[in-house]
Design a protein around this nucleic acid. Structure first.
Lengths: 185, 185
DNA sequence: GTCTATAATTTGATAGAC
DNA sequence: GTCTATCAAATTATAGAC
């Protein structure tokens, strides 16, 4: 693994626990076995590192989601699939969504980081909207599908927050089970 | 207004924008017109200040909510009332819920702050559960009412997050409108 | 790519005078 | 209650050698 990649991994780990201010160049450097000054070779400023972090997280997350159209063709429920990705982030990693944390502290972030965080949310809403449109066909409209997408993403981010603070993965299950009545409006 | 109160107000303002690390004793001192060292007279450590911040926020929020039983007696919808308090926090203050931000970075908080943040969530869930039980009477059970409470609080925290990051209060309206099908299961 | 050395700033905190 | 003075540590960042 390249040093650059190792730095991003270490930063992601810390940021998903305490946000943008929860990692420093020195800590990351120590973890990957180089000196703090050398981190600046890979990322000129902390803002650059933070932006790359949110960008990479978004790319990986959307890539793991796959194409919503394909899912519908295989007659899989894309919403259930989508919820599963968040469940995995919470249960397997025992951490918040990186962009959920960045989103909450959005107004305090350097501009480039904020923009990439915003992109995560826009792209996820688009993914969900498309999935809902494909699944429901003539039973929905673009506006209704987008509203449902906003609803689902809000609920997932919020239920991850509650699961973390109450230290209970069951909270996530409880909140997400109640998606169904909306999902099958 | 006492200096102590002014310090808490200044801290709350900053914390609701960028979390626990987004305020320092020096900044708070400057804003209320005293020196950094004097802040330690009011709050020995930053952890003490943070804990008091979450505690005061929780007290104020629950006090503003009032008694759910009273609301039901006046045949007001307690859920609508509850959503209105979050709407106000978002629209009037243009900020996240303090405990929402603290909740997201929960695992990085000093212990006392974390405990008071957790208490905010537990007390809000209790309030909602009681409100739902009173309103629905024999149509619900304690478990079902609590699950609904978890769902509503998750959705509200998440939709505040999305509203902040997408810089759109409409997002909050969209997400919360879709509470109704669950509310009237 | 990584290092040493270093700068400038900020931070939480303490001691002791008034 | 507030001040001055001070501290130790941490932070982001740069210059320049290897």
């Amino acid at each position: 693994m390249s040093k650059r990649e190792a730095l991003l991994n270490a930063a992601e780990h810390k940021a998903r626990i305490g946000g943008y201010s929860n990692f420093s160049f020195r800590e990351l450097a120590n973890e990957v076995g180089i000196k703090s000054a050398s981190v600046h070779y890979h990322f000129p400023t902390k803002e650059d590192l933070g932006a790359e972090l949110a960008k990479r997280y978004t790319e990986n997350f959307l890539s793991a989601l796959g194409d919503p159209e394909e899912l519908v063709k295989l007659s899989q429920d894309p919403i259930e699939h989508y919820v599963g990705k968040f469940r995995h982030a919470l249960i397997a990693d025992q951490k918040m969504c990186l962009c959920g944390l960045f989103g909450a502290e959005s107004d305090a972030l350097p501009n480039k980081v904020k923009l990439h965080t915003k992109a995560f949310f826009l792209k996820n809403i688009q993914w969900l909207q498309k999935a809902i449109e494909k699944r429901e066909g003539a039973n929905t409209t673009p506006v209704k599908a987008r509203n449902k997408a906003v609803f689902i993403l809000s609920l997932l981010q919020g239920s991850m927050m509650l699961s973390k603070v109450l230290d209970s993965n069951e909270i996530f299950s409880i909140a997400t089970t109640l998606i169904e009545p909306i999902n099958n409006h």
